[in-house]
Nucleic acid binder design. Sequence first.
DNA 1: AATGAATGAGATTTCATTCAT
DNA 2: TATGAATGAAATCTCATTCAT
Lengths: 178, 178, 178, 178
Amino acid sequence: MTIRADALRSRERILAAARDHPRGGDVRLNDLAREAGVGVGTVYRHFPTQQALTEALSMGTLARMLAAARAALSEPEASVAFTGLVTEALELQLSDGGLQAVLMSPDGESAEVRETKQEIYAAFSAVLQRAQAEKAVRPEVNVIDIQHLICGLEHSVRLGDEGSRDLYTAVILAGLRC
Amino acid sequence: MTIRADALRSRERILAAARDHPRGGDVRLNDLAREAGVGVGTVYRHFPTQQALTEALSMGTLARMLAAARAALSEPEASVAFTGLVTEALELQLSDGGLQAVLMSPDGESAEVRETKQEIYAAFSAVLQRAQAEKAVRPEVNVIDIQHLICGLEHSVRLGDEGSRDLYTAVILAGLRC
Amino acid sequence: MTIRADALRSRERILAAARDHPRGGDVRLNDLAREAGVGVGTVYRHFPTQQALTEALSMGTLARMLAAARAALSEPEASVAFTGLVTEALELQLSDGGLQAVLMSPDGESAEVRETKQEIYAAFSAVLQRAQAEKAVRPEVNVIDIQHLICGLEHSVRLGDEGSRDLYTAVILAGLRC
Amino acid sequence: MTIRADALRSRERILAAARDHPRGGDVRLNDLAREAGVGVGTVYRHFPTQQALTEALSMGTLARMLAAARAALSEPEASVAFTGLVTEALELQLSDGGLQAVLMSPDGESAEVRETKQEIYAAFSAVLQRAQAEKAVRPEVNVIDIQHLICGLEHSVRLGDEGSRDLYTAVILAGLRC
DNA sequence: AATGAATGAGATTTCATTCAT
DNA sequence: TATGAATGAAATCTCATTCAT
């Protein structure tokens, strides 16, 4: 059975309403429902947990991150590819406050999210290994470490003002170099 | 008027009970009260907000951080002093899950917390400037940046396992070098 | 929209629990909730004020008082009707310790209570006027006075023991005669 | 040891403040203390219970009631004495909203209150018996009944407006006649 | 004896989640 | 499937009373 048209409309309305809020995981579901013009029950039917809603909201950003990782694979210069990908990933995480939670959570994900994350992971890993093969990046870090460091970097940047982004990124990238 | 002995006892009991809980800011106030053997009202009287409780719990760690910063000022080797202080600060933040919130929050602090934070800031700043004077640390970062980067580092380490601490610290310290 | 079955069940449970307590307006709401097997919030949802609960508890007695007043209208002998009704009203007020408050309070009533009270008032008034027309009751008292006197009578009887009821009633009825 | 001057002053201040409030037994003791310019503890020291305060406030009225009862004993006409005393007692109870509670409470009284009440009771009883000896009052009522009926009468009058006092009193007095 | 900060039981409110309609 | 009233756990506030100073 295919998804009903009205159900789809409800879903879209809820997501649209959620996008009007700063991402932080603490929207009042009742408020969200009111703003979306649907009942609370409908929100719960579509997104049984906060996590499910967060994931749905991040699906688009996740796709863009996968695209960026794949694009980096085509970049001829390995260190440029790596540097660019880290910068791009940070950019995306800054633009989507819920993305970090989705990336870091090990469970509760939809199949689609899980698969996308694995593909991102694989592509990211390839970019990192290419850079390490060229002695452009410390050999002892793995892709998990890179993700953790990017998340920490995102955290640092959020604590500061907009201007600190490039400086902090430069510190991390310099620290990762051989 | 000085604080009453019984009030002090209540306060200590509540703090002791709170210390038995993993820091995360989500203890049940009722449970806390019961465990401390006091009424809920008493908890609210002593700590009107979650922030007040968090601050009180971090006061000890804050004092240790100030001690560490001052000790670093006596270290003859400027770069060693800086490196050691960053490592020590990270250690303290990892040991006290509420400390970062206290360090980063601009308001709602008790006078004691505010003063201690300012002293930490001053000592930290002196250690940094000494290291920068010796060309041991990038000249474009200031003490605020260092604190943000340590907070990000704490975040990264919490995402990983225990073993990642030294590696991530090494990355940050390397990135900060001239 | 009609009342939900579960809500009605909760309501009934709360009322049943409240009936297990001596009427006096000083039941512990928390206890009431526990005894009724519902949350405190549910009690407050159904009965936002003490007054609302009192009214609901008295609804049955109020209905019986209306029935008594209407029955008195069918009694052929006017003075017997009046005497019987006063006696009956006292009986009901003695059996329901919250009834007097409901009868005397001018506001905060549910529509149902308000209407029933008005009907009681009208029937009572007719019974009184019939008795006055027959010179069986002082012409200068009105139905409000009768209600106030019955409330005072209830008060007197509650101060004494069971045996004083008939005597005090006799005094009032004698005093009301022409 | 005699009472300290400052303690007496405190006591008087508290009573003065309490007299500024409508008697109903539900003054906030903290408010009372503030208005009296003393600490809450002082209020509790002087008047350990609500009852103690009520009694102290009623002491004056109680004395006036005793005076009235004794005066009635000197009235040559027994039925006039009785009627006048009932009217006077009602008057006093209406003027002092806490008096009924003091009169009706069997315990918790100060020795002075207890004695005064007994004297009132004795004098009232004599007035009643004289009236009954003259066949002016129903023989089956005793002094306790009279007090209960006056309390009920007070209650009735409080429910109505000022104008109803004489009517309700007339009803009761008529009902008490042989 | 006087003080009022401190206490805790209980009252009331909030809100995420459930579930009858 | 959609709805939102209903739920109750937990948060928060109030206030009569106690007790350290």
